[in-house]
Amino acid sequence: MNRFDLQTWLPAIVLGVLVAAISVYDRGFLAPSNLITITGDTMTLFLMASGLTFVIMLGSIDLSVQAIASMASCIMAVYISRYGIVAVPFALLGGALAGAFSAIVSTRMRIPTFISTLAVSGVVLSFGYWFSDTRSVNIPAADRDMWLFWITGSFAGIPGEIWVGLVALLVLSALLQLSPFGRLVRGVGAQEQAVVASGINVDRVKFFAYVLSGFMAALAGVVMGARLGSGSPTLANEFLLPAIAAVVVGGTAITGGVGSVWRTFIGALIIQVVRIGMTFVGISVFAQQIVFGALLVAAVAITMDRSKVLVVK
């Protein structure tokens, strides 16, 4: 099996092994209702990681997704009782704007993205505090039932959030695999100079990738807020590491060019199953960050393409 094949199938194999291992100890694990619950719990992570996939495919990074998700949950929670459903597109717009800001800062000023998005995350965090007046904001149950039923309700026996995630998976996969934009994203990640040389406006490709990342992070924030029934400026703080880990564990290389949205889907499921497994074995919630941190470094080391970087900084 060559390296490319291994990278494609390894995540799915790992997921299968993990699920099998847990189901040996816990017979109830494979029950359909349990699997649906687990998939539902994974959706917020997947939504956040799905947009991030595009950015990482470029060979860049977005360290502001957790701040954007938190801010979106605040915008939604604050405005939903006043403006109804309009609060949701409002929140998504906020996320898209934050992504656009990151893109402009890094492409116009030519600042490496790990620093520009770190800086933008600070700005976005402040906005989250500003929208929510530094508090956690409750979403009234009536508003939740009226406007957010597509997340909290269920259709055909499957929770709304899973439908949202599946739609995102299909749309974003199509965008990445079939559209010209997706091809350019892969091209920029694989060999940016070649894309520039062929006369493509690379900055515009990056702009849309960051807007998409911000948008999806905001959608994740909205779903998170709807599930918890509240928005808070620190709601998604713990999600940056799992989100990057989901993308990388799924087999998308941080050097760019190689990856896909369904890999991120598998990656998010792996993260969730690992988390369940750790809880099952009795590793405290607090200690789980340790495992995720180590997992991230390991996955990056396995997937990255070293022929692309002469000097590792």
Partner: peptide, 15 residues
Amino acid sequence: LKTPSFMTTLGMGFV
């Protein structure tokens, strides 16, 4: 591991 420092240290920071 020849991994970029921002990734390595991000992971270690969480550890």
